[in-house]
Design a protein around this nucleic acid. Structure first.
Lengths: 212, 212, 212, 212
DNA sequence: AATGAATGAGGGTTCATTCAT
DNA sequence: TATGAATGAACCCTCATTCAT
């Protein structure tokens, strides 16, 4: 996302581009790909429609950049995690909590993923960068499982893919379907206590899923 | 959805309305609310735009009917379940399998829920019928849990809401995010074997979550 | 407007037709010919669209009936006037007051005439009935002028057409252009006192126009 | 309506905007607000629908601009009047003739006012500019009356508002209701001689209304 | 680097009207 | 007599996008 160019004009240009990208994240997140309008994005970025085409080429390419951006941001945040592998159970709890909180604090991550899936992943498929980004999917989880197995705490026949999906499911769904769930279950899942309870529940559940 | 009227014309009218509704389910499911075009729906229903307004009033009201319809269909299917409560663990496995298969076989249920949540539940909120439909959310799950607890198989401190969310999460997310997950994890989650494995995994996990 | 048919069904039919006509007067009066919608009329008449075509044939023919109706109503009201020709000045004042009050109390008469003129009289031209109705245009005014002339109160060279136009102008314009005038002149012409003052003014003016 | 911008493109833009405005005057004048179609206006302006929204925002806002435009044009024409106040009666005749001829030569002024009144002044009410324009309503008439009073020609108790309404009524109604009147009175008011006679009549009448 | 002007296709919706019973 | 069902044209407006400076 950063360019090497220096000079005042180049900096201004970079700022404009970043403004557009961040506006696009917000707008696509709230309105979806089809519903998000170019004009809405450009005005939120305090720029104008033409600039979007100047820097990104098309609405679709802008959305692809948005996808790359939110994945990269997630990866960056995850990379900052410092887990104590001498306590595998604690480390797993921390990882679950990290993912949970990331989804809670970045609703745009959730909604843009939902949007992209409604479009059957057609934008993601067009991005070569995304494939690189996804290379490290299990990078954080694998050492935890291996440490737990080495200590005899976790089962030997754990499928890391299933474990990853389990954690993601339990963190994602609550946030992605907050509105219909609250209505369907007649409770307010947006409440602080409800969220805190859920995090406790899924942390325990994840451990139950791994323990011998 | 059924009317008491008789006569050829009234029957034909009912068929027209049903055709539109089913076409709407398909189109909204594939294109989302914003992306789904009235003309697309009407031509798929072998009717014309005007009839949509004649029977449903607006695109938004049609979408609300679609929401009600898919919830009602789910409830009907669930109501047909005949579970053997003398075997609580088996009953739970059957319920998990039912929900899983329902999501797999009704991708429109998943995508329309996703769409509605992207719109922050604004359509669901406008439907008084939906609130009635959601009344029986725990109707099938509760007897299973109670039977398991009576037999001393399940823990006493189970939160039914958490249990429900757990099952739904594990069934929904895999289907809703199939595309980005397949790309991110570099595996094809749409494969038959992958799905079957996942069902086994979540059935086990659900039981681990309930057992003493 | 009345039919000779007897019997309950015929009476009901007549009532429906009258309901539609009166609803049409209201709607066309408020919305104009183009703006007035068939559905609006039929629902106000507590009938349905199809009946309008059943009884009147088309929107245009309905509007022609409305035109005929409001002219006939005006003529009927005018025919009830009983003027004292032994006092020509008083009789003229009464005629002016009658026309003024008719316009004030029947805003639909004013607005429908305005609408018809915006359409360049194309509907009126298609009505043979209207030409009959207009035959008696000067029927009330002429005797007054002749009586005044006979008494030496009014000038001999009075043009009855000009006199008629004068009175109509002074009564009509105030009502027809109430909104733009109130705004343009920065006064509220809809006020009771303003109206009463204007009637006094135009009564005097009309007499000044006729006196020797 | 004029901009300070220079450059070929800015000039072309101004021309486009003016073309649309003038086309709108014609179309709204002939078809009314509801009947006037956007496509009709844009094609008459040799532009396209989109530009109307680009420059004016909506059909309604365009109509408001049309209202402002015709009032401003009238004011400009009136401002060019050079009346000889040493001859108050002659000046009044000239003012009457000016207003009469303005209505005759600008039928769009009459029809658009009629249209706006059919809509109960709802557009005029939304225009802040219109209120300014109307400030000088009596600017031309007042000096004439005062000059006539000073010379002892006109009565002392003249109400300027009534005088203004009188002149406007007599000039407007003949033009606004030409079609129904011609039909109702069975004469052709559009004839040159008829118009000339009427101007003579109302000039005399106006003076009779003011003289001692 | 940045922007105002312009475009054509198509969006949801409404209209007057006719069909069929 | 009366009415639900159906239609196609058109209406206002918005969209993503390109042109020209």
């Amino acid at each position: 996302m950063q360019t090497r160019k220096t000079g005042v004009r180049a900096q201004q240009a970079d700022r404009t581009k970043q403004n557009i990208l961040q506006a696009a994240v917000k707008v696509f997140s709230k309105e979806g790909f089809t519903g998000g309008r170019i004009e809405q994005i450009s005005s939120l970025a305090k720029s104008n429609d033409r600039m979007i085409y100047y820097y990104f080429g098309s609405k679709e390419k802008l959305f692809i950049c948005v996808l790359e951006h939110i994945y990269a941001s997630f990866n960056q945040a995850e990379a900052k995690l410092r887990l104590d592998l001498s306590d595998p159970e604690g480390a797993l709890r921390e990882l679950v909590a990290f993912i949970w909180h990331y989804y809670v604090r970045h609703p745009e991550f959730v909604t843009i993923l939902a949007t992209e899936n409604l479009h059957q992943g057609k934008h993601a498929r067009k991005s070569p960068n995304l494939k690189e980004l996804s290379g490290e999917a299990f990078g954080v989880l694998r050492p935890i499982i291996e440490a737990g197995q080495a200590k005899g705490l976790f089962r030997a026949d754990i499928d890391i893919k299933h474990t990853y999906l389990m954690i993601a499911s339990l963190c994602y769904f609550y946030n992605s379907n907050l509105y219909t769930l609250s209505s369907f279950l007649a409770v307010d899942l947006a409440e602080k206590q409800a969220k805190s309870d859920w995090l406790d529940f899924i942390s325990d559940l994840a451990l139950r899923g791994l323990r011998c």
